[in-house]
Design a protein around this nucleic acid. Structure first.
Length: 433
RNA sequence: GGUGAGGUGGCCGAGUGGUCGAAGGCGCACGCCUGGAAAGUGUGUAUACGGCAACGUAUCGAGGGUUCAAAUCCCUCCCUCACCGCCA
């Protein structure tokens, strides 16, 4: 949610910045609505004050010994006059208030000035590359062919159990999948200063509103058939970020470098609107695992924090010896809540392409304002909105895909990256022998 | 799942219809006292919105209702605790 005060200060500038996203922010509509809101507020509040005063007068009179009936009679005329208008005015004020709320909730974040223009991913700008895509002396296969040949990747059985876009894994592949989770968590908590956290995988609608999945993107979520609004999490970002919701961190519990949480969780996405996309293999599933990094930082720190956080995700790829590139998303590819996003794209020999494996974003105070996530600034003594960031560090399924494809051998076996050795119980190669 | 008791300010806790945004205490801040400290003592101490300000409005788990007036009464829901039942 944007700061309504900032919009008031310079609505044209806000409209101009949002126009970069291809979004029309109607300044006149906003200004008019805001003026109506304020007028309705003032009017109803004044009337309420009068009403309250008259009511209290009854109390005072009764306290002085007047009978209740007599006291009522004395102020009846005033009260009747007020009552005639009051309901109408407060209802009006509420409606306008709700309109404004809806407008703000539906308005996306302002992209940072250094985010490039563009309509879609083709306009994303590459920042760096790491590693060399391997040259194979044989025809590189994709992860589906490799996994099925090993007899360890089985989408057919998953389709029987549930449906499309699910996977069953066996033996070393299942273990490799688990090893990746352990490896990533240990790296982030051991070397990058993150606190490990475990959270619910089912959240309420307040949490989803806080991080921005609601109200606009309900169709991407799995909603539970329950009396109250409960959803499967689409990412650990939701529960982890929301631990700060409606909370004020005191300065001593909010260190200079901010709060960092690393969380492994399954993620559930309906993938509505992605029919036909990535239908083969494990790239786009309804259920996948991810290690998520979430940071709460002081506003002055969030620029640096994004660089650091994306660096933490990069470190995972480097340790796993997976070639990748880093891109900054253009405005058109930026999610609604984000001010700036780096994507890490890993090289997939099976597709001869770089594919997204991590997305690291600075949300500035956009999520924090929705959540009322604050810290007490010792300089002012006042609660102030903090900044939130998150990034995948990394998506497990896609990392598994990358390992299969990048470490494949001529005989179809897979060499296990050295970094995973401690987690694989001595297995250095999957398949072959 | 059943039964019972509860949810009030940073914390504890009083308040069962009327000058209650809320007694009292703790904590915290500042001052006095002191050579310094402790003790003592005085003052202050929630958040949001509107207003230059005085101040106004809202918030006593959430939502709805009754009433001139609700922390207080009624309804629905959520949560916590205790006991019982069931259970990975």
């Amino acid at each position: 949610m944007l700061d309504i005060k900032a919009i008031r200060r310079d609505p044209a500038a806000v409209a101009q910045t949002l126009a970069r996203r291809g979004m029309t922010f109607d300044v006149e509509q906003f200004t008019a609505l805001d003026a109506r809101r304020k007028q309705a507020d003032v009017d109803s509040q004044n009337l309420q004050a009068e009403h309250k005063k008259a009511s209290k007068q009854i109390g005072v009179l009764v306290g002085q010994g007047t009978s209740v009936e007599d006291a009522k009679a004395q102020v009846k005329e005033t009260l009747d006059k007020i009552a005639a208008e009051l309901d109408d005015l407060t209802a009006q004020a509420k409606t306008i208030q709700a309109e404004m709320e809806a407008l703000l909730l539906g308005t996306p974040n302002l992209p940072d000035p250094d985010v490039p223009d563009g309509n879609d991913e083709s306009a994303n700008v590459e920042i760096s590359r790491w590693g060399e895509p391997a040259e194979f002396a044989f025809e590189a296969r994709d992860h589906v062919a490799l996994g099925e040949a090993l007899g360890q990747l089985d989408s057919e059985t998953a389709a029987k159990l549930t449906g499309s876009r699910f996977t069953v894994m066996y033996r070393d592949l299942a273990r490799l999948h688990r090893a990746l989770i352990q490896f990533m968590l240990n790296l982030h908590i051991g070397e990058h200063g993150y606190t490990e956290i475990y959270v619910p995988y089912i959240v309420n609608s307040d949490s989803l509103r806080g991080t921005g999945q609601l109200p606009k993107f309900e169709e991407d979520l799995f909603k539970l058939h329950a009396e109250h609004d409960l959803y499967l999490i689409p990412t650990a970002e939701v529960p982890v970020t929301n631990i700060a919701r409606e909370r004020i961190f005191e300065a001593e519990e909010f260190p200079e470098q901010g709060l960092r949480f690393a969380c492994h969780s399954p993620c559930f996405r309906s993938e509505a609107g992605s029919y036909g996309k990535d239908t083969r293999g494990m790239i786009r599933q309804h259920q996948f695992e991810k290690v998520e990094l979430v940071q709460f930082v002081r506003p002055a720190q969030s620029d640096d924090a994004l660089e650091e956080l994306s660096g933490h995700a990069e470190k995972v790829l480097q340790r796993l010896e997976l070639p990748y590139r880093k891109v900054v998303l253009c405005v058109g590819d930026l999610s609604a809540s984000a001010a700036k996003t780096y994507d890490l794209e890993v090289w997939l020999p099976g597709q001869q392409a770089y594919r997204e494996i991590s997305s690291c974003s600075n949300f500035r105070d956009y999520q924090a304002r929705r959540m009322q996530a604050r810290w007490r600034n010792p300089e002012t003594g006042k609660p102030e909105l903090l900044h939130t960031l998150n990034g995948s560090g990394l998506a497990i399924g896609r990392t598994l895909v990358a390992i299969l494809e990048n470490f494949q051998q001529a005989d179809g076996s897979i060499v296990v990256p050295a970094a995973l050795a401690p987690y694989m119980g001595g297995t250095e190669r999957i398949g072959g022998q």
